[in-house]
Amino acid sequence: MKNFCAAATFLIAMLLLQEAVLALSNDADSQFIENPDIQLYSDHSGELDPLGYWTEEKLKNAIPVTIPVNDEEDQSFSTSLLAPPQDASHPVLPEDNIYSNLAKVPSTSGKLFYTYGGKNYVCSASAINNVYKNLVMTAGHCVHSGSEGDWHRNIVFAPAYYEGPSSYGLWNYRSVRTLNGWINSSNSNYDQAFLTVFPKGGRNLINVVGGNGLSWNYSQAQSNVRISGYPAQNPYNGELPYSCYGNTYKRSAFSDDAYMNCSMNGGASGGPWFRSMIDEDLGYVFAVTSRRSTTGTPRLYAKPNAQYVKNMFDEMR
């Protein structure tokens, strides 16, 4: 009888483990869509928005996006890092190396605008180097509204935004991808996304503004990190970029979150977390801003890029 009970207990445990692994695997898979207005696109580089939706007034009045989380709550599912930290790509300068003459602020970071439910919203984002030279990284909640929601529309990336669009203008999205864990259940462990953008003037984004490297499997505890974004709630106004500098820490033994004490708020979602910089403009992105504290010490939270983020990176064209 004892042997039967032990065997039954072992079988139940294995079934539960298998179910948990399957659920984790499904959450770590991703989905993508192409811009439904893709057939309307034509490269009118002199226009603010070649697809004709965004105006400077709409950009200025876009609603800042954030997902607040209470410091006392910790609902993340902890997963171990099973591989050594690696870099999927490396930073690269723009072809002309003249970004400092075109922009008052770093050119690889910027604002990400989109529409949902008839309203205009804004997040932060950064250009990421890959072989196709057209990639942008942001938070999952900046491209899809999560559980019981849908994909966002009219997505544009505005690199080096400074009191309005910079000389680089707006870059319309061509395709966007995020994770099932975010789409199906708004799980913050899977709050990462990539999008590709159309070229402008026959040139790809990374060749024009430069591109950051992508790091994955780095731990939550990193030294000398820089977090960049466009906070837009009081006392910020969203017109200027800000950065926080310091060390990041693991939130708790039961969480995959990294955090840094930082006062940036709504609008900073999706902004890059640089584990290291090669100059003032370029670095290695190991996470993106996902949430912030609502009580106590102001903090930003992010799940460092894991294998499934690297998988998404590999699938972007």
Rank of each mutant, 00 (worst) to 15 (best):
P241V: 15
D281P: 10
A258L: 13
K303W: 09
T297I: 15
S269Y: 03
E280P: 06
R275E: 11
N261E: 10
M277K: 01
Y259F: 15
P304H: 06
T297L: 14
M277P: 03
P272N: 08
T295L: 14
L300Q: 12
R275P: 09
Y301G: 03
V288G: 09
L282R: 15
T248D: 04
G271F: 12
T294Y: 11
V285P: 00
C262Y: 02
R299L: 12
Y245V: 12
A302F: 04
I278F: 00
W273L: 11
N265F: 02
K250M: 12
A253R: 14
K303L: 08
S263K: 01
A302Q: 05
N247R: 05
R275M: 15
Y284H: 06
V285H: 03
Y245N: 10
G270Y: 00
T248G: 02
A258E: 12
D256L: 11
S293H: 02
G271P: 04
I278G: 02
M264I: 08
G266D: 08
R299M: 15
M260H: 08
N247P: 01
T295D: 15
P272Y: 06
A258S: 15
M264E: 05
T294W: 11
C244L: 06
R291D: 11
F274C: 10
F254M: 07
D256E: 14
A306G: 12
S290M: 08
G271W: 04
S252E: 01
S293I: 11
W273N: 05
D281G: 11
N261M: 05
S290N: 08
S255M: 10
P298S: 07
G283I: 11
C244P: 06
N261G: 06
P241G: 12
A306N: 10
G266H: 00
Y245M: 10
Y301S: 06
Y242F: 14
L300D: 09
S243M: 10
K303Q: 09
A258K: 01
Y284A: 07
S255H: 08
P304Y: 05
G283S: 04
G267W: 00
P241R: 00
D279I: 04
W273T: 03
M277F: 09
Y301L: 07
S255R: 06
Y245G: 09
P304V: 11
M277N: 00
N305R: 01
Y301V: 05
M260Q: 15
R292H: 10
N247Y: 02
D279A: 03
A306Y: 04
P272L: 11
M264K: 01
S293K: 02
A302P: 13
R299N: 13
V285M: 03
G267L: 06
A253S: 15
D281I: 09
S290E: 14
D279R: 01
A287P: 14
N305I: 00
S293D: 08
G270T: 03
D256S: 14
I278T: 12
S293W: 03
S243Y: 08
A258Y: 00
S276R: 02
S269A: 09
T297K: 12
T248N: 04
G271V: 13
C244S: 13
W273C: 09
F286V: 06
M277S: 06
D279W: 03
Y249Q: 02
Y259T: 07
Y284S: 09
N261L: 08
P272H: 05
T294V: 15
Y259K: 11
S243R: 03
D257S: 02
N305S: 12
S263N: 06
A253H: 07
D281H: 08
T297A: 13
F274Q: 01
S252T: 12
D281R: 02
